[in-house]
Design a protein around this nucleic acid. Structure first.
Length: 270
DNA sequence: CGAGGGACCTGGTTGC
DNA sequence: TGCAACCAGGTCCCTC
C-alpha cells in the first residue's frame, strides 16, 4: 500500500530516469485508469518529461505544459523498463524512446493517472485539500493540534485524514502512534500540544527511516524497478497482531478503527 | 457540519 | 480438492 515513503522512493527513482525523455505514445488498456477530461492526449505525444514531484501520496509527472497526476491507491505501481518486459495487470503504457516504457500496473484498478495542464494543477480539488507535508521543516505540531480541536474521532482516524497531514496511511499511522506512545483509539480532542509534538516527530522519524529502507513491501508494493522495500523488517506493530511488542514483549493487540485494522501495544501506548 | 459506513476492486487465505 | 466467504485499504460518496 503505497503511502508517503513509497511514493517518495518512486518519485526519486523516476527523477533519475524520466527528465528529458520523449513520450512517443500512450497505450491505455483500461479506460478508467487514464483520465483525460480536457482531451489533451494528442498534445502529450512528442513532449518530454521535465521533472517528477510528490505531493502527499500523489505523483506529479511534468512535461513542459502538461502534467500527469498519478495515484497508486492500494496496488498501483509505476514500472520503468528499458528492455522488453512481460508484466501482468498493466493498465497504461507510456512509451518512450524504444524500447523504454513506463508501465502503470494496478491489480485492483483503484489507482490511475490524470492528464491536466500545468496551469490547471493549482485548481485540481484533490491536491487543494491536502494538508501540509510532514517532512517539511515548516510543518509543526500545530497542524495536528489545531486539526484535532473539537474532533471526537479516534486519533488514528484523524491521522488518516489527508486534509490534516498529507501522506499518512494505515501502516505509518500505526507505526507513528506506537513510536509516540499514544493509543490509536484515544479521542482526537484529548490531544495536547506536547503529545501532538511527539506524534509529528514520530511521523517524521518513521517516514524518514522508511524512505531510507526503500519503503515497506508488506504485500504488493514495488518500486519503479520492481524491487521490494525493506522497511517491513523494522515495523514495530503493523501486521504484528499477537506477536510480542518489541519494547515490552507483551502481545500486541488488534482492533478496528474507522474500518481499518489497527495494531498497538496496550502497555506501551497510553 | 461531523461521524460512520458502504462502494469500488482482485488475489490470497481461510474454512468447510 | 473445490469452492465460497472473507480480508486487505485510499478515497469518495451517502446517510443520519
Amino acid at each position: 500500500m503505497p503511502e508517503l515513503p513509497e511514493v517518495e522512493v518512486i518519485c526519486r527513482q523516476l527523477n533519475e530516469v524520466l527528465p528529458g525523455q520523449e513520450i512517443t505514445g500512450i497505450k491505455v488498456h483500461l479506460a478508467k485508469a487514464f483520465a483525460d477530461p480536457q482531451g489533451l492526449l494528442p498534445e502529450l505525444i512528442g513532449t518530454r518529461f521535465t521533472e517528477v514531484q510528490r505531493r502527499g501520496k500523489y505523483l506529479l509527472l511534468y512535461t513542459e505544459r502538461l502534467v500527469l497526476v498519478g495515484h497508486l491507491r492500494m496496488t498501483g505501481a509505476l514500472l520503468y523498463r528499458t528492455h522488453a518486459a512481460s508484466i501482468s495487470h498493466v493498465r497504461v503504457e507510456i512509451r518512450l524512446a524504444p524500447p523504454a516504457v513506463l508501465y502503470f500496473k494496478d491489480v485492483r484498478t483503484f489507482g490511475g493517472l490524470m492528464l491536466l495542464r500545468r496551469a490547471d494543477l493549482a485548481m485540481y480539488p484533490p491536491l487543494l485539500k491536502l494538508g501540509p507535508e510532514p517532512l517539511s521543516p515548516q510543518t509543526s505540531e500545530l497542524a495536528l493540534y489545531t486539526a484535532s480541536r473539537g474532533r471526537k474521532v479516534a486519533l488514528k482516524t484523524l491521522l488518516l485524514d489527508q486534509r490534516v497531514i498529507a501522506g499518512v496511511g494505515n501502516i505509518y499511522a500505526d507505526e507513528a502512534l506506537f513510536l509516540a506512545g499514544l493509543r490509536p483509539k484515544m479521542r482526537a480532542d484529548r490531544l495536547t500540544r506536547p503529545k501532538a509534538r511527539r506524534l509529528l516527530a514520530a511521523l517524521k522519524t518513521v517516514f524518514t527511516q522508511s524512505i531510507e529502507d526503500g519503503g515497506t513491501s508488506f504485500r504488493d508494493y514495488r518500486d519503479s524497478a520492481g524491487k521490494r522495500g525493506l522497511h517491513v523488517q523494522r515495523l514495530a506493530v503493523y501486521g504484528r497482531k499477537g506477536l510480542p511488542c518489541k519494547r515490552c514483549q507483551r502481545p500486541l493487540q488488534s482492533i478496528r478503527l474507522g474500518g481499518r485494522t489497527t495494531v498497538y501495544c496496550p502497555h506501551c501506548q497510553k
